[in-house]
Design a protein around this nucleic acid. Structure first.
Lengths: 210, 210
DNA sequence: GTTGAAATAACCCTTTTGGGTCAGAACTTC
DNA sequence: GAAGTTCTGACCCAAAAGGGTTATTTCAAC
């Protein structure tokens, strides 16, 4: 299994090289201090797994992930970094990083991570995993509550589907006048003056889930 | 450290009890075959960590997570399940499950997971981790492209902010007639018949980023 | 058993919207 | 310079939307 390394700290890079080279399963085929010209380097080295630092001068790891994952989807990339920046974490994940190991973790974790990614897993430091799970949790916090009644939510939902007042009336088996009445109340509660505004608010603030 | 277990398969539950009981760090304080009346059970047992199956008759694990995490945010919950259902996976994570271990994994993984959650980590089977990371990746794929021009996107964006045609005209320094013209084109391209529909489509399909 | 909230419905009215059609100006591309 | 796209603007017209007012019914709560 061929590994290449991108890490600007020379000492650390050599350490990783040694660690990985010590195994007879892995072979280091490339080792660089930034992601400059990474595409050609990867084409030349043909690694199976890339270990990538984020913080590097000039061409950083975020760039690297982006470029490689766009062209070579099946080369696995493990981010290896100190952890101080949520934004870059999620940018990397978005662009398809396969694993995320912190530098403060034991070196054996990095070693195991290589095996895991090549087996199709997604090794993460527990700190990272927690951070990732938190993004899911966030979404169920109760944002805002405009005290819409069930009926009002129902009608607002149909409005977001592009129904006209008349269609809503038919769908709910009530007169169009009642639909208008409900929507008037809804607009008041949401502090909006039009259907489009109400829809925008409903969708972005997720007013319609339950 | 006090552990309680919810698992409908009696054999498996006993196995887990034994596994955990064999350690002198952990103590099983409760063991049940569904989540019926879980709130009182938890109040009585006062566990630090709960191991929770998802598939249980009558009162399942999804319910359990919901109820417990609502009241006792700091009791850690590890989901322990066969894996066949993305929906329930994400529902559990959303409600605050702290770890997610598959039954097919080695029992030692479950054992380690207990230590990890109590240390604030988020242990996951690699299958689960991969599934979770995939949800991030998904979001950057180019959904749909309706070939809106820059101007059209600009105007659609103002519409989603609840601007009327007139307000858009003023904001863009063009006549209201031109606004109407643009919106007619936009509606055609999006295959919608109204502003509300267009807004809903724009927001849910993220047509306005970039 | 009355108070109150929610849902239902009707009337008024003006403004806004959405569809049709037509057309000139500005700009790039070939 | 011809062709194509984009942005601009206009007119007509019917339908829809949005705001105001008033009122009945239902149903749970106190």
């Amino acid at each position: 299994m061929k590994i290449s390394i991108y890490e600007d700290n020379d000492k650390l890079r050599e350490l990783i090289e040694m660690l990985i080279g010590s195994s007879n399963e892995f072979k280091v085929v490339g080792s660089y201090h930034n992601t400059h010209d990474i595409l050609n380097k990867v084409i030349q080295d043909q690694p199976d797994v890339i270990i990538m630092d984020i913080d590097m001068p000039e061409h950083d790891g975020v760039e690297g992930v982006q470029i490689i994952k766009q062209k070579f989807h099946d080369i696995k990339i493990i981010m290896h970094t100190v952890f101080d920046d949520d934004d870059r974490l999620f940018t990397c994940l978005q662009h398809g990083a396969d694993g995320y190991i912190l530098k403060k973790d034991a070196p054996t974790l990095l070693f195991n991570a290589i095996k895991e990614v090549s087996a199709g897993g997604a090794p993460m430091s527990s700190d990272i995993a927690r951070r990732v799970l938190q993004t899911f949790r966030k979404s169920d916090k109760p944002l805002n509550d405009y005290h819409l009644t069930d009926r009002e939510k129902e009608i607002l939902e149909l409005l977001t589907k592009g129904f006209t007042y008349r269609m809503i009336g038919i769908a709910c088996k009530i007169s169009i006048e009642t639909v208008r009445r409900h929507l008037k109340n809804i607009y008041q509660k949401l502090h909006v003056q039009s259907g489009t505004e109400a829809v925008a608010k409903a969708v972005t603030e997720q007013l319609l889930k339950n």
